[in-house]
C-alpha cells in the first residue's frame, strides 16, 4: 500500500512538472495574444462577459436576451455564465477564470458587494474594463454601475406602494429568497427605514424565506395567512415568491382583502394581476438592462464611454443619462391591471 502511495505521489509530481513545462511556450503566446488584442482593438472581436447572480433564473434569462441582441448589433462575443445557485464565492471563481481567459470587459450583477469587489479589482488591475449592473459592487471596483434602481429606490417604492394600498396602519409580512441573500437584506433595510419614517403604524409581523422556490413560497404564504389573520399585505421580494404568494392568497379566498405586491416578471404574474389578486409588480425593463450593460461594457472597452461622461448613446435604445458613475436605465415600472398587457417578458 505504502508503495503505491508513493508511486502515485511521484506520478503527481511528474504531472506537475509536465504542467510546469507546458506553461512556458503557451504562456508566451497567450500574453502575445492579449497584447495584440488590447492594442489592436478593431482588429479582433471584443469579448464581453456578462454575469448573472444565478443562472436558470427567469429574470436574468430576460437580461440575457437583451444582452444577446446588443452583442449581435455590436459584433462582439458574449460570454454568459454565473453560479447555478446564488453563491457569492462561485461568482468570484468565475470572474477569476474570466481574467485568465482574457475577456475585454466584464459586466457583473453582484451577489455579495464586498466579496466580489476583490475579484473585480483584480480584473481592473489586469486592464479589463468592469461595469456592474442590477446590483452594485464597491465603487472603486468598477467604472460604471448600470443603475436600474438603487436598493433605496426599490425599498422605498415597495414600502410606498404598501402604504398606498393598506393605509396608515395595518400588518404586513415579507417573503424573501433566503436569509443570507445580500441584496434582499439591503432592500429590507431600506423598507424598514421608509416604514419608520412614513408609516410607523404599519407593522412588519413576519419575515419568511422560501429558498427561491415558488411552491415553498406558496406554502409559507398559506401559513402566514393562517398565523396572522389580520394580515393586510404580503410583500414578496424575490421573483418566484410573487406568484407563489398570490396563489396562496387566492386559495385562501382572501383576494382583495390581503394585498400582494413584489418584485417579479410580468409574464409570471399576469394572471394574478388581471384577477385582482396581485395589486402591483415592480420591475424595470430587464431586456433593456441586459442590452445596456453589454453596450456600455463594449463602449468602455473601445473608448466610446469614458469616466466622467455625462451621457451615453446606446444603439437602438437611444441616449442615457449618467449621474456621477451611475448610468441610469430609468425609473422602475409599477405593473398593474392597466398596463401589464403591454409587456411580454
Amino acid at each position: 500500500m505504502t508503495k503505491s502511495f508513493f508511486h502515485l505521489l511521484s506520478a503527481a509530481i511528474a504531472m506537475a512538472a509536465l504542467l510546469g513545462t507546458g506553461c512556458g511556450p503557451s504562456n508566451n503566446s497567450a500574453s502575445g495574444d492579449g497584447a495584440t488584442q488590447t492594442a489592436g482593438g478593431s482588429g479582433k472581436k471584443l469579448m464581453i462577459a456578462l454575469m448573472p447572480k444565478s443562472k436558470g433564473n427567469a429574470y436574468f434569462v430576460s437580461c440575457k436576451q437583451g444582452a444577446e441582441r446588443a452583442a449581435k448589433e455590436l459584433g462582439v462575443d458574449l460570454v454568459f455564465d454565473g453560479p447555478t445557485n446564488p453563491d457569492p464565492a462561485k461568482q468570484n471563481e468565475i470572474i477569476e477564470n474570466w481574467i485568465t481567459l482574457g475577456v475585454d470587459a466584464i459586466a457583473a450583477a453582484c451577489e455579495n458587494r464586498d466579496g466580489i469587489s476583490t475579484a473585480l479589482r483584480k480584473a481592473q488591475a489586469k486592464g479589463i474594463k468592469v461595469i456592474t449592473y442590477d446590483s452594485d459592487a464597491q465603487p472603486d471596483a468598477r467604472s460604471f454601475f448600470v443603475n436600474q434602481a438603487t436598493p433605496e429606490g426599490i425599498g422605498y417604492t415597495l414600502m410606498d406602494e404598501a402604504g398606498r394600498l393598506v393605509g396608515p396602519s395595518g400588518e404586513f409580512a415579507i417573503i424573501t429568497a433566503s436569509l443570507t441573500a445580500a441584496n434582499m437584506n439591503e432592500w429590507q433595510k431600506h423598507i424598514e427605514a421608509r416604514r419608520k419614517e412614513k408609516f410607523p403604524n404599519l407593522k412588519m409581523v413576519a419575515l419568511r424565506p422560501c429558498d427561491d422556490l415558488k411552491d415553498k413560497a406558496q406554502a409559507e404564504a398559506t401559513t402566514l395567512l393562517g398565523a396572522y389573520p389580520n394580515l393586510n399585505l404580503i410583500m414578496a421580494i424575490c421573483s418566484p415568491a410573487v406568484p407563489g404568494s398570490a396563489e396562496a392568497v387566492k386559495q385562501a379566498g382572501k383576494a382583495g382583502k390581503v394585498k400582494v405586491i413584489g418584485l417579479g416578471l410580468p409574464s409570471e404574474n399576469r394572471r394574478y394581476v388581471k384577477d385582482g389578486v396581485t395589486d402591483s409588480v415592480i420591475l424595470w425593463k430587464t431586456e433593456d438592462l441586459g442590452y445596456l450593460a453589454v453596450h456600455a461594457a463594449k463602449g468602455l472597452a473601445d473608448g466610446t464611454l469614458k469616466p466622467g461622461a455625462k451621457s451615453y448613446q446606446a444603439g437602438a435604445l437611444g441616449q442615457f443619462e449618467i449621474v456621477g458613475d451611475h448610468l441610469l436605465l430609468g425609473k422602475p415600472f409599477i405593473f398593474n391591471k392597466d398596463n401589464i398587457d403591454q409587456f411580454n417578458f
Binding site: 504542467l19 497567450a30 481574467i99 482574457g102
Partner: peptide, 8 residues
C-alpha cells in the same frame, strides 16, 4: 483559450 498559463 489561455488554459495553460501560470495565472490560470
Amino acid at each position: 483559450r489561455n488554459f495553460l498559463t501560470p495565472d490560470n
